[in-house]
């Protein structure tokens, strides 16, 4: 992953998964992706420690692109661009 200035990303939808655990952040992200068009960006907030490893795998398996990750005060932030099917 290259360094991305996340402040310039146009986020189509933000998903709050704070306080949830696996599989809910991934499940909710996949549901949220269904409502987006190819190329649109989903931002996910998660406090599940597993999410750090899970979101790169989710993006790879579901053919999305993980553009950037961030962390602030224990909240992990993921920017994922919806891929084509």
């Amino acid at each position: 992953m290259t360094e991305t200035d996340t402040t310039t990303l146009e986020v189509a939808k933000e998903l709050d998964c704070i306080g949830m655990f696996c599989p809910m952040p991934i499940y909710k992200a996949s549901m949220a992706m269904k409502g987006l068009e190819t190329g649109q960006i989903l931002k996910v907030l998660s406090t599940d420690l597993g999410s750090v490893a899970d979101f790169p795998s989710f993006a790879r398996q579901a053919n999305h692109e993980l553009l950037a990750t961030d962390e602030a005060d224990g909240v992990h932030i993921f920017f994922i661009r919806k891929g084509g099917n």
Partner: peptide, 12 residues
């Protein structure tokens, strides 16, 4: 149930 719903979330 966790594994199956995660797999389906990834398009499996």
């Amino acid at each position: 149930l966790i594994l199956a719903t995660t797999a389906a979330s990834m398009g499996w």
